[in-house]
Computed example of a mutant assay.
Amino acid sequence: MTTQPPQQPGYAQQPGYPQPPVPPKKRSKAKLGCLGVLAVIVIGGIASAVGSGSDDSSAGAASSAASTGSSKGTSSSKSRGSSKGTGSAKTAAPQQSTVDAFKAYVKEHESAKTREAAAHVTKVQGADKNNDIMDTADIYTDYTGDLASADTGNAKLLASAFADFQAGRGQASKNGLVTVYNADGDILSNGKY
């Protein structure tokens, strides 16, 4: 009687023959397709969140417009005689943009050389969003120099003043990084805040 090798289907394991290897399980293409779609959705959501972010100066204007609209709503409900108020209606002052608040802080608390450097600041971004994991803020200037220019010293002053500004507002970060850019968007300096 001849015995067949065990790799043929329908035959049991014979003594003396090694156990045939178990072929790997095939992955379902549907499962991999779902994971791919999920990855695209997550990446798209992150990209849209980053892309839809606005600079702090326009965000301040938008929030002041929203607060003005909400204060108008409370005053009109009071004029109709509604008794659901919480007291006297306060008039909301327009919120100061981050760049204006930074320049005002520098004007009041920093040296003359730093005040002169702050006059070159055109935009400040990311100063109001801290999570203490990796906080970043950007200061844009109208300087035209690069890393090896004299403007780098002024950019260092701005980075240092920004750290003081954030600490003064109670928004200092454990892991904050502020970057100062020139008019072309090139890095002049950076520092911790």
Rank of each mutant, 00 (worst) to 15 (best):
A92F: 06
V42Q: 08
K72L: 12
Y143V: 07
K123R: 13
A148S: 09
Q171L: 07
S160M: 00
K90H: 06
G53K: 02
I139C: 01
Q8L: 00
D55S: 12
D151P: 02
Q96K: 05
G73M: 03
V106M: 11
A47R: 09
L158H: 02
V121I: 15
A117T: 09
S97E: 15
A101S: 15
S189W: 03
K78Q: 13
K26P: 02
T122W: 01
S70N: 12
L35Q: 12
T152V: 02
Q7G: 06
S79G: 15
S48G: 00
Q7K: 02
G16Y: 05
A62L: 02
N130S: 15
A155W: 05
D135F: 12
K84H: 10
S79F: 10
Y143D: 08
S75G: 01
N131D: 13
P9W: 08
D128R: 14
A65K: 07
D135M: 13
N190S: 13
T2V: 09
K78A: 12
K192S: 05
L35M: 06
S77C: 11
V121S: 00
A119R: 09
S71Q: 14
C34W: 03
L157R: 13
A66H: 01
F162G: 12
G44L: 01
A118K: 12
K26F: 03
G145M: 05
H109S: 13
Y193P: 09
S173L: 12
A66Y: 10
A101Y: 14
A137T: 03
A150P: 04
H120F: 00
A159S: 15
G85L: 15
K31A: 11
T152F: 11
H109N: 14
P24T: 08
G44H: 04
T3Y: 03
S58A: 14
Q8M: 01
L38H: 06
A112M: 13
S57D: 10
S111W: 00
A127H: 05
L157E: 03
S97K: 14
K78W: 00
